[in-house]
Amino acid sequence: MALTMIILLIILVGIIESWIYGKEGVIKIIVPIMILSLANFLLVYGKILVGDNFSTIIFCLSSIPLIIVSGIWLLVVWMRSPKEKGNNRKKIAIVFSLLITFVILFIPPLNHEDKFNMYKEDYFAVSDAIFQAYDQEKLPMGKQINTSELNRFEDIFPKTIINKMKKLNDSAGVYAYIVADKDVIYFSFGATFQSIDGIAICRNNKDPSRDTALKARFFDRNTEFTYITDNVYQFFDGL
């Protein structure tokens, strides 16, 4: 749904830019506007929908050459516009196009806490399902469920939960689900260089920051926790 809305919004902005430019000579900006729209899509997709920080950087860097090419192209059209009829309208269209891109360029990307708030219902649905599987002795403590092997757990979780796990992987960057404790589930974002972080969802008012055994159970055995909201913490381990 979010991807569809972004695509429609980018197309709408392109149509508005072409409309402002006017019918006369609009063919001259169709290609650079399409290139700029692609750059805008990469920026928005990378900052909002992509799950992990590394992929966000890749998408944003990929947009830079497109912005440069389309920007130079539009500036050439700008310099030639005084000789054409309705040049003020054409200049407004070019300024509007570049302004939209620069606004998107400097909007900060969503962090993991932002994405937790966006997909909160999915996080809690998955954690409830994992807690239930643990209580029913279908999963042992310490079990790690990698998103690359979710098909192996179709006999434990219903399809709706498997789909939510895939969604959290695609949109929030969750690479693994870990039964960290009888009252704690880790949603791991994977390792970056020599560190790892993620979201810890708890039950029974568990405070993981006070559990020294839990802190020393995984990763580099020095896990730190930061409170987000009731029963939800961000965890970090490594350098």
Rank of each mutant, 00 (worst) to 15 (best):
L3Q: 12
T4G: 12
I6W: 06
L9R: 04
I11M: 11
I11H: 03
I11W: 08
G14Y: 03
I16T: 15
I16A: 15
S18I: 15
Y21H: 09
K23Q: 03
V26I: 14
I29K: 01
V31E: 11
S37F: 01
F41L: 15
L42N: 09
L42P: 05
L43M: 13
G46F: 06
I48H: 08
V50Y: 03
S55Q: 08
I58P: 10
L61Y: 11
L66S: 00
I68N: 09
S70K: 01
I72V: 15
M79D: 04
K83E: 13
E84I: 06
K91M: 05
V95I: 13
L105P: 06
I107E: 07
K115G: 14
K115F: 07
F116V: 05
M118W: 12
M118G: 08
S127D: 09
D128L: 13
A133M: 07
Y134L: 14
Y134G: 07
L139V: 11
T147S: 01
E149Q: 06
E149R: 06
E149W: 03
D155Q: 11
D155Y: 04
N163P: 00
L168S: 02
S171E: 10
V174I: 15
Y186W: 10
F187S: 08
G190L: 03
G190E: 07
T192D: 14
F193H: 08
S195R: 03
G198Q: 07
G198K: 04
I199N: 04
C202F: 02
N205W: 06
N205Q: 14
D207Y: 04
R210L: 14
D211L: 06
T212L: 08
K215G: 00
A216T: 02
F219S: 09
F219L: 08
E224W: 00
Y227G: 02
Y227R: 01
D230M: 00
Y233I: 05
F236R: 12
G238A: 04
